[in-house]
Amino acid sequence: MKIVNVIVESPKGSGHKYDYEPETKCFKLMKVLPAGLVFPFDFGFIPGTKGEDGDPLDMIIISEINSFPGCCMDCRIIGSIKAQQTERNGKTMRNDRFLGVPEVSQLFKDVKDLEHLPEGIISQIEYFFQNYNEQAGKKFEVLERLDAEAASKEIQ
């Protein structure tokens, strides 16, 4: 299992989207989500990586933990959701979501791969990002789900 360092930007249950800005070394409030829409799990990034969108790779942290923007944790990769995102200007790019479990999690300590999660959790995450992007005038299309081994290779 690949272990990666993850920085939380937007915590589980938050109705606010934060982005880390390397230039200012600050977490900036980027948007307020529509009423009732909240992050289902902590959402952050894997430092030292770069996705097709130019940002570090996105990580959803499956856990019972409620953290905070800037919280750093070691997570094991359990899979990913390969996705294509279409911006408002029509430009389409890959914008995958990697899934990880904190090494300190007790509730999810036996989850080593995407197949160990209930289907409802994965569907909820996919639906959240489809709805989240739709609210911003974008389209988020799930291409496929990858297991832990394939997701770890994508990170490298």
Score class of each variant (00 low, 15 high):
K2A: 13
I3Y: 02
I7C: 09
V8H: 02
E9A: 07
E9D: 11
S10M: 02
P11H: 01
K12C: 09
S14D: 06
H16G: 00
H16R: 14
H16L: 15
Y18R: 04
D19Q: 13
Y20N: 08
Y20E: 07
Y20S: 08
E21T: 05
P22I: 13
E23P: 00
E23V: 08
K25C: 09
K25R: 15
C26I: 12
C26R: 15
F27C: 09
K28W: 13
L29G: 02
M30L: 13
M30E: 14
V32G: 03
P34M: 10
A35I: 05
G36R: 13
G36Y: 10
L37T: 00
V38E: 07
F39K: 06
P40F: 14
D42G: 08
G44P: 05
F45M: 12
I46M: 14
G51C: 10
G51H: 06
G54T: 05
M59Q: 01
S63Q: 05
E64R: 01
I65H: 10
I65P: 00
N66S: 11
S67T: 13
G70K: 03
G70F: 07
C72I: 15
C72R: 14
C72W: 06
C75F: 03
R76I: 07
R76H: 11
R76S: 08
I78K: 07
I78H: 07
I78S: 06
G79V: 03
G79K: 02
G79N: 03
S80W: 00
I81L: 14
K82Y: 01
A83F: 02
T86L: 10
E87K: 15
R88W: 06
R88G: 06
N89P: 07
N89H: 09
K91D: 04
T92N: 00
T92F: 05
T92I: 11
T92E: 12
R97G: 00
V101H: 00
V101M: 05
P102G: 01
E103F: 04
E103Y: 02
S105N: 01
S105G: 00
Q106I: 07
Q106R: 12
L107D: 04
L107F: 02
F108S: 01
K109S: 12
K112F: 12
K112T: 03
D113C: 10
L114A: 01
L114N: 01
E115F: 10
E115C: 08
H116K: 14
L117H: 06
P118M: 03
P118S: 06
Q124W: 01
I125C: 12
I125A: 11
E126G: 07
Y127P: 00
F129G: 02
F129M: 10
F129N: 04
Q130V: 10
Q130A: 11
N131F: 12
N133D: 05
E134H: 10
E134D: 08
Q135I: 00
G137L: 14
K138T: 01
K138N: 11
K138A: 11
K138H: 08
F140H: 12
L143N: 04
L143T: 05
R145N: 08
L146Q: 10
A151W: 09
A151I: 12
K153P: 02
K153W: 10
E154A: 15
I155Y: 12
I155T: 07
I155D: 09
Q156Y: 12
